[in-house]
Every structure is written in C-alpha cells, then in structure tokens.
Amino acid sequence: MTLQWTAVAFFLYAEIAVNLILCIPFISAKRWRSVFNLSIWNWLSPYWNKCFFTMIMVLIVLFCDAVREVNKYSGPESMQDAKVNPNVYDHVHMKLFRAQRNLYISGFSIFLWLIMRRVVTLLNQVAVTLENSAGLEAQMDNAVKAAKQHQDDNLMLKQALLDEEKSTSAKNQQLKLEVEKLANQVKAAEEALRKSHAEVEAMRRQAKGLAQEYDRLLTEHHQLQNLQSAADKKDQ
C-alpha cells in the first residue's frame, strides 16, 4: 500500500473511532456541547470549514483515481492480456484487488467524514434543544405557579367578597330591624301625640264650658245684687 492510501486508511480508522465515540450512549449531548465549546475549538472554528472541504476534495480525487484504476484493470484489454500470460493474470487481479480496496477505503472515508460532521451538528442541535426545553420547562413551571397563585388569590378574593356580602346582608337585616323598630316608635309617638291633642282639645272645651258657666254665674250674681239693692231701697 502506497503512502497516500496508508494515510487514507489511517484516516478511515480515525473516523470510525471518532464516530463510535460520538455515538456512546452514556455521554449526553450537553457534555459534547461543553466539549465543543472549549477554547481550542473556538480557535479552530475559522479553519474548520476550509479543512472539511479540503478533505472532501482530496478524498473525492482519491475516490475518482480508485474508480479509474478499477475500470482500468477490469476492462477487456487487461483481461485479454491476462488470458495470454498467466503471470500477467495474477498481476492484473492483484492490481484490481488493490484498486477495489482503495475504492472502498476512499468511499467509506468520504461517507464517514460527512456522517461525522452531521453527527457533530446534530449533537449541538440536540444540546441547544435540551437547553431551550429546560428553559421552557422552567418558564412553564413558573407560569403554572403563577396561575396557581392567581387561582388561590381569586379564591381568597371570592371568599372575601362572599364574607363581605354576608356581613353586608347581616348589616342590612339589622338596619331593617332598626328601621322597623323606629317606625313602630314613630307610630307610637304619633298615637301618643294624637291622644295628647285629643286630651288638650277636651280640656280646652272643658275650660270654655267652665268659663261660660262662670260668666253665667257672675251675671246671676250681679242680678241678685241688683235685686237685693232694689229691695233694700224699698224697705227704707
């Protein structure tokens, strides 16, 4: 295996190892996000896209070269020469095997390189989604607590209004009883005043009758005096 294909093979093994590590179930997406947010990755982030596309181009070139080699050693001309010379037949099959091996190595390297980038992106998205969901859950808990508090406040307000209504009803009932009591007292006072007016009118009539009787008696007294005086004069 030449140096370039040895490097591609080691690159493929590294990709397999990294993808297996990224797929470990007990390492959460938040943990991976904290790893990806290290300062070294922030320093390498401006070069990440360039490195990614450079490796894609290199692997595509090697893949195309492997495809060319496979087509070269699997073509009819190579097989025709191999049938003439048995040594050439073994050599052609060895070259074809190596070309196919290189094709698989470069193809899987491209595939795993894209998969690794996608896995890293998905892990970041999952971590962000979990953080947002945690924030939303906290907001929802706060909203539920606030709603429960408002509900308790509404119940307390309803209870206070009900107590106030009962108290007002009791006060109104008491005021009604007091008004009825005062009305009865006013009615009794009016009745007593009416009786007093009747008694005063009766006393006035009685006083008027007494005055008339007094005048009559006084008139008779004057008449008797006059008669007595006239009788005394006749006797003299």
Score class of each variant (00 low, 15 high):
residue 4 Q to W: 14
residue 5 W to H: 15
residue 6 T to P: 04
residue 7 A to I: 12
residue 10 F to L: 07
residue 10 F to V: 09
residue 13 Y to E: 11
residue 18 V to F: 01
residue 18 V to T: 06
residue 18 V to C: 08
residue 20 L to M: 09
residue 20 L to G: 10
residue 21 I to E: 11
residue 26 F to M: 06
residue 26 F to T: 11
residue 27 I to G: 00
residue 27 I to W: 00
residue 28 S to H: 08
residue 29 A to K: 02
residue 29 A to N: 04
residue 30 K to C: 01
residue 31 R to D: 02
residue 32 W to G: 00
residue 36 F to E: 06
residue 37 N to W: 05
residue 37 N to D: 12
residue 39 S to K: 09
residue 39 S to G: 15
residue 40 I to V: 15
residue 41 W to V: 13
residue 42 N to L: 07
residue 46 P to G: 00
residue 47 Y to C: 01
residue 49 N to C: 07
residue 53 F to P: 01
residue 54 T to H: 05
residue 54 T to R: 07
residue 57 M to C: 12
residue 57 M to D: 09
residue 57 M to L: 14
residue 58 V to M: 04
residue 59 L to D: 01
residue 62 L to W: 03
residue 66 A to T: 00
residue 67 V to M: 06
residue 67 V to A: 05
residue 67 V to L: 08
residue 68 R to K: 07
residue 68 R to N: 05
residue 69 E to H: 04
residue 70 V to Q: 09
residue 70 V to C: 12
residue 71 N to M: 03
residue 74 S to D: 08
residue 74 S to M: 10
residue 77 E to N: 11
residue 81 D to V: 15
residue 82 A to Y: 02
residue 84 V to T: 11
residue 84 V to W: 13
residue 85 N to E: 03
residue 86 P to Y: 04
residue 86 P to C: 08
residue 87 N to H: 12
residue 88 V to T: 05
residue 96 L to N: 00
residue 103 L to W: 08
residue 104 Y to E: 10
residue 104 Y to H: 15
residue 104 Y to I: 15
residue 105 I to C: 03
residue 108 F to W: 07
residue 109 S to D: 04
residue 110 I to T: 02
residue 111 F to L: 12
residue 112 L to V: 03
residue 113 W to R: 06
residue 121 T to V: 15
residue 121 T to H: 15
residue 127 A to M: 09
residue 130 L to W: 04
residue 130 L to H: 01
residue 131 E to I: 01
residue 133 S to T: 11
residue 134 A to P: 05
residue 136 L to G: 11
residue 137 E to L: 13
residue 143 A to H: 06
residue 144 V to H: 11
residue 145 K to R: 02
residue 146 A to F: 00
residue 147 A to C: 12
residue 148 K to E: 07
residue 149 Q to D: 01
residue 150 H to A: 05
residue 153 D to T: 00
residue 153 D to V: 01
residue 159 Q to L: 03
residue 160 A to Q: 10
residue 164 E to N: 01
residue 168 T to W: 10
residue 170 A to S: 09
residue 174 Q to L: 04
residue 175 L to M: 09
residue 180 E to A: 07
residue 182 L to R: 13
residue 183 A to H: 08
residue 184 N to Q: 13
residue 185 Q to S: 10
residue 186 V to Q: 13
residue 186 V to A: 13
residue 188 A to F: 12
residue 188 A to S: 15
residue 188 A to R: 15
residue 190 E to H: 14
residue 192 A to L: 03
residue 194 R to N: 06
residue 195 K to T: 08
residue 195 K to R: 10
residue 196 S to G: 09
residue 198 A to Q: 13
residue 198 A to L: 14
residue 202 A to P: 02
residue 203 M to E: 12
residue 203 M to C: 10
residue 204 R to Q: 11
residue 205 R to L: 14
residue 205 R to I: 07
residue 206 Q to H: 08
residue 208 K to N: 15
residue 208 K to Y: 14
residue 210 L to R: 02
residue 211 A to N: 06
residue 214 Y to L: 05
residue 216 R to S: 02
residue 219 T to K: 11
residue 220 E to A: 12
residue 222 H to A: 14
residue 222 H to L: 14
residue 226 N to K: 03
residue 226 N to A: 08
residue 226 N to Q: 14
residue 227 L to Y: 03
residue 227 L to E: 06
residue 229 S to R: 03
residue 230 A to C: 12
residue 232 D to L: 15
residue 232 D to F: 13
residue 232 D to H: 13
residue 234 K to E: 08
residue 236 Q to H: 13
